[in-house]
């Protein structure tokens, strides 16, 4: 058994992982949104990213319209927006700074370099969004790789990964909820069905790619793509590393790790919450759901994730 870990360090490492995961996710969402906006006139809708984060109030306080550039600035460089990549990176770095005795030198150095790179980002670079997002994603993936390769496997490592997978599961349910309407359109049989289906394909594609899941999906479904299959894949396929099922599976392994490897056995409330959340995933099925059903289902799932997070918070960080 390793020596004990101060509560605040456990919480900091948990949040370091969450912020890094959040940054990667946001970069992907922005990138995919741009790719699909380009070349699809009439669907140039940047406001949905604002809706996804419930940022309407904060955004329109400072901007008149959800133009491409305003939204991109708001989510990449705006330090007044606590959900921006720059803000998340700032918080990640502040956490990392307090953890320098626990994380590897390489981890700190890379986060610090990443931070200064992004702080110096030029306006012109914001207009080359795809390029910039690729760089941000790669910096996050570099972080993941360095962490895998250098982070000592102690309690801090476990709390880091708990944060990472909880954030991942949370992001996937939010992203799905943002697009729950596509289920209805796929099923509609009225005169506009054809046009709607066209639009759905774009939506479904965007969603998959936002979660870096296109190729993974194709391994399971080599031909064809329906909204139902995609939603099902993102929720339930535990082989896909951004599915909700995968996140829960990882959280379970990590909780086992806490009690077995680190002798932290106060996990009753966490296990109860996790069992509850996993039950919703295990018994869930997309077949026969319409948009309202899906929204309600995702809502339930989000509440369960919230309870699980609170249980971890109360047990270990409170």
């Amino acid at each position: 058994m390793d020596s004990s870990l101060l509560t605040r360090f456990a919480e900091n490492i948990f949040w370091l992982a969450r912020y890094m995961e959040r940054i990667e996710n946001l970069a992907r969402i922005l990138d995919v949104n741009e790719t699909y906006n380009r070349g699809h006139a009439g669907d140039n809708d940047w406001s949905r990213i604002i809706r996804l984060h419930n940022d309407e109030e904060a955004f329109f306080e400072r901007h008149d319209a959800a133009t491409e550039f305003a939204v991109i600035s708001f989510y990449i460089v705006d330090r007044k927006n606590p959900n921006s990549i720059m803000s998340c990176l700032h918080f990640a770095r502040e956490n990392a700074r307090s953890l320098r005795h626990l994380i590897s030198t390489e981890m700190w150095r890379q986060i610090n370099t990443f931070y200064y790179r992004l702080r110096g980002v030029k306006t012109a670079e914001l207009r080359q969004l795809s390029e910039l997002c690729r760089e941000i994603k790669e910096a996050c993936q570099t972080h993941t790789g360095i962490t895998e390769g250098t982070f000592f496997r102690n309690q801090a490592w476990t709390f880091y990964h708990l944060g990472k997978y909880l954030e991942r599961g949370d992001q996937t349910t939010r992203l799905l909820d943002m697009r729950h309407n596509m289920l209805t359109r796929a099923d509609s049989e009225d005169g506009e069905a054809n046009a709607a289906r066209q639009l759905d394909l774009i939506e479904v594609n965007t969603l998959l790619r936002s979660l870096a899941g296109y190729h993974a999906f194709r391994l399971v479904h080599p031909a064809g793509m329906t909204a139902e299959d995609v939603v099902s894949f993102l929720l339930f396929d535990s082989r896909f590393s951004r599915s909700v099922a995968f996140s829960f599976k990882m959280v379970e392994t990590l909780i086992d790790d806490l009690s077995k490897a680190h002798n932290l056995r106060r996990n009753a409330a966490i296990r109860a919450a996790l069992t509850d959340a996993r039950y919703v995933v295990k018994t869930g099925t997309v077949a026969g759901m319409d948009a309202a059903d899906l929204h309600e289902y995702l809502d339930t799932l989000q509440v369960k994730v919230g309870v699980l997070t609170s249980a971890i918070d109360d047990t270990y960080f409170g």
Partner: peptide, 9 residues
């Protein structure tokens, strides 16, 4: 001292 294993004197 608050640790993940509980309070330690």
């Amino acid at each position: 001292m608050k640790t993940t294993a509980g309070k330690v004197a």
